[in-house]
């Protein structure tokens, strides 16, 4: 009787093939959903930078952002940025989920927004707006 030896690697290769095959059996998703996720990540980053600068520039904003006395204004800056990011994602996803978008343009905007987020969270920049 023939005896077939199965290589221990084989099951993972089969899993891999199954996974790729089942995905390719489905019609390709339009790129709108990916664009929504990527652009909203840029928006969330820029919002964080914006709230950091706002809290430095305005004493009232700093107080409003102090949702927790122990954590201080960081509690509000991060909570509001995350909330804004999730709202932006939900809105963009619902609008673009079945659409094909200009991916290169959306990516460029997202990277610019990410850059603004990095700038807004960099202390030498946001301290330019500090209330003394």
């Amino acid at each position: 009787m023939a005896h077939i030896e199965i290589d221990p690697v084989t099951p993972s290769i089969i899993e891999e093939i199954n996974s790729l095959t089942s995905s390719s059996d489905r019609p390709a998703l339009p790129n709108g959903q990916a664009g929504a996720a990527i652009l909203s990540a840029g928006i969330g980053s820029a919002l964080l930078g914006f709230f950091v600068v706002l809290a430095e520039a305005s004493t009232t904003a700093k107080q409003l952002m102090t949702l927790d006395a122990g954590v201080g204004p960081l509690s509000g800056k991060t909570t509001f940025a995350v909330a804004g990011w999730l709202i932006a994602w939900a809105v963009l996803h619902s609008r673009w989920r079945k659409q094909t978008i200009d991916f290169a343009r959306i990516t460029m905007i997202a990277l610019i927004l990410l850059g603004l987020g990095l700038l807004g969270t960099f202390p030498p920049f946001y301290m330019l707006f500090a209330q003394h």
Binding site: A37, I38, A41, G44, L48, L74, L114, G117, T121
Partner: peptide, 24 residues
């Protein structure tokens, strides 16, 4: 305290897209 918060937002966008688009 500020820059660290960008990481999970970006990582979530990557993870979600990978999960959603899979083999594509």
């Amino acid at each position: 305290e500020h820059v660290g918060w960008l990481s999970p937002i970006l990582a979530t966008a990557v993870a979600w897209t990978v999960l959603r688009y899979g083999g594509q």
